[in-house]
């Protein structure tokens, strides 16, 4: 056997915590001793809250050895991680899974579509794409959110507007919201891209992914060039526990990023 043995978590310290939304915070982690191998945009880590357990969290930022994760408080483990302050330690395993295939999009218009917390795994992709603009066509970032208060990374997404078309919409505006209201798919009408050649990257709740990908295919986008990031339960993250199966896929290994070609039929089968 040449494969390495599954490794236990490494110690990482929380060096910053940024509240993003009422139930969502971003934590920046730095290795206490040795760092894990480098993460790519779209990949995830298993982040362990001491004594509580670990959950898969996509990297929402990569800066040398530092890992950034955006955590939404939806359960016991995510609540523990969401509540960590700077100075706390966590355990981290990774990197796991497939990442966004940005190089394959060279020369094409980019369409990044995010729903809710789905913007987190897409942020490092947008950063990488905007850092190398001549390599890509027109960049578009379409963001859907529940309310204006739930919008993530607001100063940064505004700054992206200098070099990309950034369109934001909310489901439920408040009295101060002057932006768009409606589902994220309606933003496709205002995006600046050639659907027949563009490369699309989608992350959000599954119905949002289905609706967005179906609309793009209808407009002529090749399903092989639509990448989506999917979510299922994960315990081991190394293909040994069986929890993250989606039909033929083990999402910790074959995902979370898969092409729409691979995902479409699977997402149409109820309770697969």
């Amino acid at each position: 056997m040449t494969a390495p043995a599954a490794a236990p978590p490494r110690s990482y310290r929380v060096i910053a915590r940024v509240p993003e939304a009422p139930d969502t915070a971003t934590i920046v982690l730095e290795p206490v001793r040795s760092a894990l191998p480098p993460f790519a945009p779209g990949q995830f880590a298993m982040v362990y809250a001491f004594g509580v357990g670990d959950i898969p969290l996509s990297v929402s930022g990569i800066d040398g050895d530092r890992l950034t994760h955006t955590v939404r408080n939806v359960g016991a483990i995510s609540a523990a991680l969401h509540g960590l302050e700077a100075g706390a330690t966590v355990g981290v395993r990774g990197p796991f899974g497939t990442g966004w295939e940005l190089p394959s999009a060279a020369g094409r218009d980019l369409l990044v579509v995010a729903g809710g917390i789905g913007l987190a795994p897409l942020r490092p992709l947008v950063r990488a794409a905007l850092a190398a603009p001549p390599e890509y066509g027109r960049p578009n970032v379409l963001i859907g959110s529940r309310t204006p208060r739930d919008l993530l990374y607001v100063p940064e997404t505004r700054a992206w507007g200098r070099s990309a078309r950034v369109l934001v919409t909310v489901d439920r505006p408040d009295d101060r919201w002057n932006g768009e209201v409606g589902v994220v798919t309606t933003l496709l009408d205002r995006a600046d891209f050639d659907p027949t050649t563009a490369a699309a990257f989608i992350c959000g709740p599954e119905p949002m992914i289905r609706a967005t990908a179906a609309e793009l295919v209808h407009r002529g986008t090749d399903p092989d060039r639509i990448a989506v990031s999917l979510e299922r339960t994960m315990h081991c993250a190394i293909g040994h526990c069986g929890h993250c199966q989606l039909g033929p896929l083990l999402l910790c290994r074959d995902g979370p990023v898969v092409t729409w070609t691979a995902a479409r039929a699977l997402l149409l089968v109820r309770e697969l």
Partner: peptide, 26 residues
């Protein structure tokens, strides 16, 4: 059948934790 679930436990001091895995069924 190989599926497992993880289980995290701590002792009474709260400073010692263990990671266990046990057989799980789909």
């Amino acid at each position: 059948c190989f599926c497992t679930s993880t289980e995290d436990v701590t002792d009474l001091t709260g400073d010692h934790a263990e990671r266990w895995r046990h057989w799980e069924s789909c």
